[in-house]
Structure formats: structure tokens, C-alpha cells
């Protein structure tokens, strides 16, 4: 096994849909724009146009940085359905890998927020008896999410059968 605990095995990570990045960028950009506009307006009205300009440049900078970061973050998310467990990997700076044995899943949620619905995406979340389990797969097309949920539920039932 390589030095990196987060590499994919032979079957590789299944990436999530890039439209997730679009969604997150829309949210981040509108937020940055709103705050920047507000700060700039206050500074200009308050009689500090130079500072307003600095704030504008700063705002644009942060916006571009977030744009780039979100792209990387979304590309870092992946999952793998293996024989006995589900793996979810995420994060760039703080990386994490969650392993959930199928037999431990208590329920599988599929969520779709308004923006997600507009983009044609869904989020699958796995729950176990532990509150600390954080296995969430965002950015799945609804049909994939539905299939994943049904399959995970079926695996879960199979694996915990006979108890």
C-alpha cells in the first residue's frame, strides 16, 4: 500500500457531478458579491473611495480564490462501493476517508434542496448508530442517488440478516 492513505484501490473513486461545483460557486459568489458591494458602498458613501477600491479588489480576489478552491474541493470528493463497505473520501487540506460497513447502516437519506433540484443533483447521507459517522455524498444525479440508496439499503439488509 502506498504512503498516501487516501489513494483509490483498483476500482478507483467514483467522482461526483461537476455541477456540484457550479452550485457551490453560485452560493459563494453571490455571498461574496453581496458583502463586497455592501462594504464598498459603505466606504464610498462614508468618503473613503480609495479604501472602497481596495475592498473591491480584495472582494474580487476572495471570489476568484473561492471559485478555484470549490473546483478542487468537489474534485476531491469520491466514493467507492466495495463488497462489504462503502468508502467516501473528501477534503484537500484536511483529508478524510470514511468507511461504513454495509451491515452498520441504519438508514440512508436522499436530500434535495431547492438549488440542488434546479441543478438536477441530490445528496446521499448514511446514518449509523454513531452520531460521529459523517458519510455524506453530495452532488449525485437523482437517478444515481436513488439507485445508490436502494442498493445500500439492500446490502445493509443482507449483511445484517440472521441476527
Amino acid at each position: 500500500m502506498s504512503n498516501d492513505p487516501f489513494v483509490a484501490d483498483e476500482r478507483g473513486w467514483t467522482p461526483v457531478n461537476p455541477r456540484l461545483a457550479t452550485g457551490r460557486r453560485v452560493v459563494a459568489t453571490s455571498f461574496t458579491t453581496l458583502i463586497t458591494a455592501l462594504v464598498v458602498a459603505i466606504l464610498v458613501v462614508g468618503g473613503y473611495p480609495e479604501l472602497g477600491f481596495v475592498a473591491l479588489v480584495l472582494g474580487i480576489g476572495v471570489g476568484l480564490w473561492l471559485w478555484w478552491l470549490i473546483g478542487r474541493q468537489v474534485r476531491a470528493i469520491g466514493y467507492a462501493e466495495r463488497d462489504d463497505d462503502l468508502l467516501v473520501v473528501s477534503g484537500i487540506l484536511f483529508r478524510r476517508l470514511v468507511l461504513v460497513p454495509y451491515g452498520r447502516m441504519q438508514l440512508v437519506d436522499v436530500r434535495r434542496g431547492p438549488l440542488e433540484r434546479y441543478l438536477g443533483l441530490a445528496t446521499v447521507q448514511l446514518h449509523t448508530a454513531a452520531a460521529t459517522t459523517d458519510a455524506t455524498i453530495p452532488g449525485l444525479p437523482p437517478d444515481v442517488a436513488g439507485r445508490l440508496r436502494d442498493q445500500l439499503a439492500a446490502f445493509g439488509e443482507q449483511r445484517s440478516a440472521g441476527l
Binding site: F94, R95, R96, L99, V100, A129, A130
Partner: peptide, 24 residues
């Protein structure tokens, strides 16, 4: 219940990672 492997930037530099085992 589940297992998590996590690694922060400093841990990465040192070539270490932490393994959490989730309980109720």
C-alpha cells in the same frame, strides 16, 4: 459503527494519519 481516517496538513508533512472508530 464506522471508521474514519483523517489527515491534516501538518500530519501530512510528518507522514502520519489518525484513525477514528465511531461508537454510539
Amino acid at each position: 459503527q464506522s471508521v474514519r481516517v483523517v489527515q491534516g496538513p501538518w500530519q501530512r508533512r510528518l507522514g502520519v494519519a489518525s484513525i477514528h472508530v465511531d461508537s454510539t
